[in-house]
């Protein structure tokens, strides 16, 4: 409780936090709004995008792209503690190194909760405005996609957290985070058999929010081997635990 209160004190008064969250909210609303003009496989999505209950699946897929922004925020929050030397001071003052890492893990949980709550509100808003079916059954039909999104956001931010504790400099850590998630791991995917690479961390996190209209694409090409969202939860939790553990070990065995 003490850890969370301290993190709140530091984060809520940090202008950068509000700026990044504002960008997160604004860009996401814009993308959700304009994505109805997109077309997949020649079919314009149109207002069908906002139909309950598939809306949850589509919105969580859109929100998936913005996890990068949350990851960058986590990197900024952690590397700040190094550049201000406040992490060091907290250990001097009696906080354990494990607690220092856990505090940041709680921050990722909090940010993921904010992201999920935001998605829920935006989903309801667009759904009630445009969906033809607003019965309770339809609204909550595929609400479980929000929980998949939550796990995914935590996973992305834990990867960012790991790079932040590993590299300790914001610029380099952000580059490493983007490079791994968008370039290095995708390259590895190409080299590996689909049956193996579907268990790679970014692939697992990605499987939590499958591409809308995947069924259509599968019909045209060979079906993907990606895990179903429900099946991806377990390996995702495994990677999250691994990343948190690796961060703790990093901080414990290095000079601050």
């Amino acid at each position: 409780m003490n850890l969370i209160r301290t993190e709140l004190r530091k984060t809520l008064l940090y202008p950068t936090f509000w700026v990044i969250m504002a960008i997160y909210v604004l860009l996401q609303v814009l993308l959700i709004y304009f994505s109805s003009n997109l077309s997949i496989s020649g079919q314009s999505l149109g207002k069908s995008l906002y139909e309950f209950p598939n809306l949850w699946m589509r919105f969580s897929y859109i929100a998936y792209f913005f996890n990068l922004l949350l990851g960058i925020l986590v990197i900024v929050l952690i590397t700040d503690e190094y550049s201000y030397r406040t992490l060091r001071q907290q250990v001097i003052d009696g906080r354990s190194r494990t607690e220092a890492v856990l505090a940041k893990f709680y921050v990722t949980l909090g940010l993921a909760a904010i992201g999920t709550a935001f998605l829920f509100v935006v989903g309801l808003l667009f759904g009630f405005l445009y969906s033809s079916d607003t019965t309770l059954g339809a609204i909550f039909g595929k609400i479980d996609y929000l929980s998949y999104f939550f796990v995914q956001a935590v996973g992305y931010m834990c990867l960012a957290m790991f790079f932040a504790f590993l590299i300790r400099k914001s610029g380099l850590a952000i580059i490493a985070f983007l490079a791994w998630s968008k370039i290095v791991e995708p390259i590895i995917h190409y080299q590996l058999d689909d049956r193996i690479d579907r268990f790679m961390p970014m692939k697992v996190f990605g499987s939590l929010t499958p591409t809308p209209g995947q069924e259509l694409i599968d019909g045209l090409t060979s079906p993907t081997m990606a895990l179903s969202p429900a099946w991806a939860v377990l390996p995702a939790l495994f990677y999250i635990a691994l990343l948190v553990l690796a961060s703790i070990l990093l901080v414990r065995f290095r000079d601050l």
Binding site: N2, K10, Y84, R85
Partner: peptide, 26 residues
């Protein structure tokens, strides 16, 4: 203890910084 430089959050007030320290030191 203070080691090398004063280590605080630049965007927090003196009081808010000490609140963070007080949390840590209980």
């Amino acid at each position: 203890a203070l080691l090398e430089t004063p280590n605080f959050y630049p965007y927090l007030t003196a009081k808010a910084n000490l609140q963070v320290v007080a949390d840590t030191k209980q």
